[in-house]
Each structure stands twice: as C-alpha cells, then as structure tokens.
C-alpha cells in the first residue's frame, strides 16, 4: 500500500470511480489536457479518454448547469471548479436547481452530481484563491457538503460523494493537498457520509473541526495532553446534513466544546453547531461553547494570513479559558 498525498488520493478516487462506473464523467477548466490546476486530475484524460474527461471553457455557471442535466439523465458527473473563490457563479445553478430537482419533481428526478473545488487558505494567496464558502452551500436545502481532512478520508469520502444519489459540494483543503502523506488502499471502499469521525478520544474538552482545521485540532490536543488536558477531536467531514448526535454524545462526556472553523466567524457552520449544542446539550455543558474562527474580513495577503487562520495555539488558549469555569 502506497503512501500518498491528499491530492493524489483525490486523483486515485476519481480514477477508481471512472474505472468502476461507466456513468462517471469528469470535467472542468483545465482538468483534461493540463491535469488540473493542482494536478488532481493528472493522467485521467490519457487513461479514460476525452469523452469521459473533458476540458470545458471558462464558464462556471455552465459547468454546474450541465452537471445537473447529465445527472438528471442518470449519469454521474464530477465537475471541478478551479478554486472555491470561482464557485460563486455556480450558486444560482446549485441553489435554484441542483438542490431542488428531487424536491420539485417529488422524487421523479434526482441529481447525483459532485462539484469539487480546492478550498481554504494557507497557500499564501489573497482573496479568491483562499475562500471558505462552505456555509453558503450548507445553508441550502438539498445539497450535501463534504470536506475531507486527510488523504485516506479524501479517497473514501469522494467515492461516497460520487455514489451518493444527491448533489454533493466537495471542498478539498488546498493547503493539505501536499502537506502530508498516508497509506491509502485503492480498494474502492467508500467512507460513510453524514457521520462525524472521532479521531482522538478525550475527557476534558471536545474539539470540533473540518478540513484543514482538523490538523490544527489534533496539534492542539497534543499540546494540551502535554499539560494534562485530555481533548477529544471530531472531524465533522459532512457539514450538511450534520451528524449532531456524535457531537452531542462527545460533549455529554467532556462538558466543553470548542468549534474550529477557518471561514469568517459570522453565520458559519460553527454557529449552527453551537446553536444545536445550546438547544440539545446545554445541560451537559460545564462552560460556554466557544468558536475559534477566521475573522469577519477578507483573507489578507501572505503576511497576515497566519493571523487570520485559526491555529493550534489559538485553540489551546481557548480551551484553557474554558477550563477556568470548572
């Protein structure tokens, strides 16, 4: 079994899906001939042909729209948007059509499609190349929103997303594309959607994150352990629908929760998790629920990027504040 990066795991899952299912199609800007801006689709066109791995012109709304049409005809489109900052023209198609096709036809049509995009900051680019727009899609009925946090998870979750009968927005943390390697078995096994993954068990606090923030949570947990604080780490993985039961179970045990999101703070997915903890888990809490997030501003240029992005130190400091309550 080979050790591979997250972007190689995405490539491996796409290749597996293309090989296993004739209905799977991959398309987007520069995905074929050029192998994708981050090389996520490298070699797929050579292996599977131009019919199934296609370059499109630069038209994001159309990319999303034709995916809906293909999906409604029973195909399995997997479209790439080059950066999540370029995804906004697709919002009309995804919100008004992809997310509603099943509902408005009362189940007669469905929309089994995947829109993949590199997501988030930490790659020294400002603005449009470092966005975290997951909350827009998580707010939308009918869409699934999935964010992997490691190579193995990316492989399993992407296969699950492609096989899922509904539209999935699959946001890949760009800063993790080549950050770590791990063993990934190309066994065609999907990882379950709509469930959280407990990555580390703990007693004193629950750290909840997704995507690149999972690594920061794990690093914070490690630092806290050295200080005698036992942190549980949960990788949310599917942001919508949200597996709140797993988070509630964990917080019932630990009594404290820090939610870590890279996106700006206001009205993010973290706010939804915090609200549900307040509604369903308040009596188990020993301290207020806290969010460690990006700020309500635009991603700055490289110099201040580290100040914007939540990191293990900010998470650990917040945990120590919560421990003061007990």
């Amino acid at each position: 079994m080979a050790e591979i990066t997250l972007v190689e795991a995405v490539n491996l899952a796409l290749a597996r899906a293309l090989a296993d299912d004739e209905r799977v199609l991959v398309f987007g800007e520069d995905v074929g001939h050029n192998g994708g801006v981050f090389r996520a689709t490298l070699g797929l066109q050579a292996r599977f042909g131009e019919r199934r791995v296609r370059d499109t012109p630069l038209n994001e709304a159309l990319i999303a729209g034709i995916a809906i049409g293909l999906a409604a005809q029973g195909l399995r489109p997997v479209a790439e948007i080059q950066f999540s900052g370029f995804i906004y023209p697709t919002v009309d198609q995804l919100v008004n059509h992809a997310g509603r096709l099943r509902n408005r036809t009362r189940g007669r049509l469905s929309c089994p499609m995947v829109i993949r995009a590199p997501n988030g900051g930490g790659i020294h680019a400002p603005e449009h190349h470092s966005e975290s727009p997951e909350a827009i899609f998580a707010h939308t009925p009918g869409l699934r929103v999935v964010v992997p946090s490691s190579p193995a998870r990316a492989y399993g979750l992407l296969l699950a997303a492609i096989r899922d009968p509904d539209p999935v927005v699959f946001l890949e943390p760009a800063r993790l594309y080549r950050a770590v390697k791990e063993e990934v078995a190309d066994d065609g096994e999907a990882a379950p959607l709509d469930v959280c993954y407990v990555l580390r068990e703990g007693r004193d606090v629950t750290l909840v994150g997704w995507g690149a923030m999972v690594r920061e949570c794990l690093a914070a947990a490690e630092a806290l352990a050295a200080q005698g604080v036992s942190a549980e780490v949960i990788d949310v993985a599917t942001l919508k629908p949200l597996d709140i039961a797993s988070i509630l179970d964990s917080v019932a045990k630990t009594g404290r929760c820090v939610i870590v999101q890279e996106a700006p703070l206001a009205v993010g997915v973290g706010a939804e998790i915090a609200a549900q903890l307040a509604e369903h888990g308040l009596l188990n809490l020993l301290a207020p629920v806290r969010r460690v997030a990006g700020y309500d501003t635009v991603m700055p240029l490289f110099r201040l990027e580290h100040a914007f992005l939540p990191d293990a130190a900010r998470i650990a400091a917040t945990v120590r504040e919560l421990l003061e309550y007990a």
Partner: peptide
C-alpha cells in the same frame, strides 16, 4: 496598501480600477 498583491493592483489617481483574479 498591501492587501491586493500581484493580482489586485488598484490606483484611484490613474483610474486604474483593478487587477482582478476572476476571469471576466
């Protein structure tokens, strides 16, 4: 002011209304 970088050069004096990272 150091927020635009290579792709978002703006200048009011010359009515240079932006580099733009979004094609089109």
């Amino acid at each position: 002011r150091g927020r635009g970088g290579s792709m978002h050069i703006f200048d009011a004096a010359t009515r240079f209304c932006g580099g733009n990272a979004i094609v089109g």
